[in-house]
């Protein structure tokens, strides 16, 4: 399941999507918006994606993960549009038979997502704004 949406993400929806009786481990990772960058107060954030390339790249990433690890199911949600501080920008849920595959593949997935998926983040400060690393 891959969802890119401008409405709030519900982590439970993603966790439930990957849970199963054959899976001993489920990891749900949340990326949330920070109130500060390099000591500067962030007022709010804006995320922009290139659809459908972003969805396609997320699907490719899931295929890559499945080739490398014995992962059962993967669900990814990415928020776009305007986000307030403390909101969830990213949800990654994945399941595997044992915990090691789940932890390792989740770290890899989030790292690669930052490099290959065309989603951008703008931080808006009191005295200006800047497009930065999307996550």
């Amino acid at each position: 399941m891959i969802i890119i949406t401008d409405t709030p993400l519900d982590p439970n929806q993603f966790t439930e999507a990957v849970k199963g009786t054959a899976h001993g481990a489920v990891i749900t990772f949340l990326g949330t918006t920070r109130e500060e960058t390099a000591g500067k107060k962030v007022l709010y954030l804006e995320y922009e994606s290139y659809d459908p390339m972003a969805s396609e790249k997320l699907h490719e990433l899931c295929d890559e993960i499945r080739q490398k690890w014995a992962v059962k199911d993967i669900a990814i949600g990415h928020r776009v549009g305007k986000l307030e501080i403390g909101e969830i920008s990213l949800v990654v849920a994945l399941s595997s038979a044992h915990r090691n595959e789940a932890f390792e593949s989740c770290i890899y997935l989030v790292d690669r997502l930052k490099e290959t998926v065309p989603i951008w983040k703008k931080e808006v400060f009191e005295d200006g704004e800047i497009w930065v690393d999307a996550h």
């Binding site: 290139y50 390339m53 930052k114 490099e115 998926v117 065309p118 989603i119 951008w120 497009w131 930065v132 690393d133 999307a134």
Partner: peptide, 9 residues
């Protein structure tokens, strides 16, 4: 064709 701005600065 699209220009993909840097995603990591």
């Amino acid at each position: 064709i699209a220009i993909i701005p840097p995603v990591s600065g």
